[in-house]
Amino acid sequence: MQGYQQSTYGDRIADSYDQLHGNWSPTDTVDTVVELADGGPVLELGVGTGRVALPLARRGVKVTGVDVSEPMLAQLREKDPDGLVETVLGDFIDMPVRGRFKVVLVVNSLLQLAGADTQRLCLRNIARHLAPDGVLVLEEANPAAFTRSGLEVLRITSDELHLLAAQYDPVHQHYFAQHVVLRDGQTRLHPMALRLTSTCELDLMCEAAGLRLVGRWGDWARTRPFLAGDRSHISLYRPVEA
């Protein structure tokens, strides 16, 4: 997508992100991560406005959040005046943190890296920062749900219209989209550029990074298996030597 940088998505959507995704509850995500962390530190890559990180920190978990978008982190800090979440501005491909973590959490962020090479590098760096008994927890999109190109109406109200214009490149597995919000005579564009991976490719990339799959579900509560019709999956990986 011409003119799109890694921080573009966060920079453009930061001031309205929580409003646009207000119907999503982090409860099951937080419960799962608290259980997996078992008192240890958590690193969230692509922390955004802290929708998961802040509830985790309020549960007594030590949380470090990395994001490439300063406007996103500014929204998090505004909601976190006590500094419960340690925030780090940077490209999480390079993992600009020190130490090891019991849980590395990546919620729909790995797919925001532009190519297979950067995704593989990110996973290798994650493996280096996992505690020997640590776990990588990923939520990733199911490509089967995002391969249609065209224009879709997402939401209509008396004073708002939300549209999604999307294109999919099956050769490079790239999904390009514009979430168009028409409100009060104004138009807002929220662009997205993603590289979608199948579960098989993701497992192979993790294996090459020294991580093995230990579980995969269709929801954060881990009550049902991942099925072909699901929009995303929750996958857990541990170091091979663990």
Results as ranks from 00 to 15, higher is better:
206 C>A: 15
187 T>L: 13
80 D>P: 08
178 Q>T: 07
107 V>G: 01
73 L>I: 11
100 R>Q: 14
104 V>E: 00
197 T>L: 15
178 Q>H: 10
100 R>C: 06
229 G>C: 07
43 L>I: 10
66 V>F: 03
240 V>E: 14
38 D>A: 15
220 W>T: 03
144 A>C: 07
230 D>S: 12
9 Y>D: 01
62 K>H: 12
89 L>C: 08
112 Q>S: 13
144 A>N: 09
22 G>W: 07
83 G>Y: 10
11 D>H: 09
144 A>F: 10
110 L>M: 06
136 L>K: 04
99 G>W: 14
60 G>T: 11
40 G>N: 05
111 L>I: 15
34 V>G: 00
211 L>I: 01
80 D>M: 09
84 L>I: 08
85 V>L: 12
61 V>S: 06
183 R>Q: 13
146 F>P: 00
234 I>Y: 08
2 Q>P: 03
131 A>K: 08
188 R>Y: 13
108 N>E: 09
4 Y>M: 02
35 E>R: 15
3 G>H: 07
79 K>G: 02
29 T>Q: 13
219 D>C: 09
165 A>L: 09
90 G>S: 06
120 R>G: 09
62 K>I: 02
137 V>Q: 05
130 L>R: 13
5 Q>M: 10
116 A>W: 01
134 G>R: 01
58 R>P: 00
112 Q>I: 11
158 S>Q: 10
55 P>V: 10
87 T>A: 09
138 L>K: 03
217 W>R: 07
160 E>M: 10
193 A>R: 15
27 T>E: 15
29 T>H: 06
65 G>P: 06
176 F>T: 10
124 R>Q: 14
111 L>Y: 00
34 V>W: 02
132 P>V: 01
121 L>G: 03
113 L>R: 02
218 G>Y: 06
201 E>M: 12
34 V>F: 06
4 Y>S: 02
190 H>L: 13
4 Y>H: 12
66 V>R: 07
40 G>H: 03
25 S>N: 12
212 R>K: 14
52 V>D: 00
63 V>I: 07
163 L>G: 03
115 G>S: 15
156 I>Q: 07
201 E>A: 14
27 T>P: 00
111 L>T: 04
34 V>T: 03
25 S>L: 13
